[in-house]
Simulated scan of single mutants.
Amino acid sequence: MMMEALLATQVRANMGSFIDTVVREKPQAVRRNRDVIVAASIDQMRFFLSAYDLKFEYEQDENNRFAGSVEEIAFIVGDGETLDELRLDLARQLVEYAHDYFNDYIRYYNAPNTRSHAPYVFRVLLEDDIDAVSHMLHG
């Protein structure tokens, strides 16, 4: 591993300092036996995941309603009387899916058809509310 990893015993003995470093300076790797994890702040994670844009496609029907889906997670589909309502509907469904994914992470992450959703799921879960998620969607 190219990133130097701290030993878990060092981190336990200096937890406050460890967290301060992660939040104010940089992510940190921690090793316990053969296992290595990386700790990052919420702001750092938002930045890292900002490269994972969520795009949606839509159509307008003969009744002038909008229907669409999220390109990166095609089974997230929604509709609305306006484009903003569609975006909000898609955002609600994204939040629900993100919670389901995280609550059953082992199953979703290990399934070939949903593994690639993981960075998008984390990006959604890092947002504070449904409006923030709706603003992540680009049509």
Rank of each mutant, 00 (worst) to 15 (best):
S41K: 06
I42F: 08
I42D: 09
I42T: 14
D43A: 14
Q44C: 11
R46P: 03
R46W: 00
R46K: 12
F48Q: 12
F48N: 13
F48P: 00
L49Y: 00
A51W: 03
A51S: 12
A51D: 11
A51G: 13
A51M: 07
Y52A: 05
Y52N: 11
D53F: 04
L54W: 01
K55V: 07
F56P: 02
F56N: 00
Y58L: 05
Y58I: 01
E59M: 09
E59V: 13
E59G: 09
Q60P: 05
Q60A: 06
D61S: 06
D61Y: 03
D61M: 04
E62N: 13
N63E: 09
N64G: 04
N64E: 06
N64V: 02
N64F: 03
N64T: 04
R65E: 03
F66N: 03
F66H: 08
A67K: 11
G68D: 01
S69G: 04
S69Y: 07
S69I: 04
V70N: 06
E72S: 03
E72P: 06
E72W: 00
E72I: 01
I73E: 01
F75T: 10
F75R: 12
F75I: 02
I76F: 00
I76K: 04
V77G: 03
D79M: 07
D79I: 00
G80I: 03
G80T: 06
E81S: 14
L83T: 09
D84F: 11
D84S: 15
D84H: 13
E85S: 13
L86I: 02
L86S: 02
R87C: 02
R87K: 11
L88C: 09
L88P: 07
D89V: 07
D89W: 03
L90G: 08
A91T: 02
R92K: 15
R92C: 10
Q93H: 13
Q93F: 04
Q93G: 11
V95I: 15
V95F: 07
A98H: 08
A98V: 08
A98G: 10
H99Y: 10
H99E: 11
H99F: 06
H99C: 01
D100G: 02
D100K: 12
Y101N: 05
Y101M: 01
Y101V: 01
F102S: 13
F102N: 14
N103R: 14
N103G: 11
D104T: 10
D104F: 05
D104E: 14
D104G: 11
Y105V: 06
I106V: 13
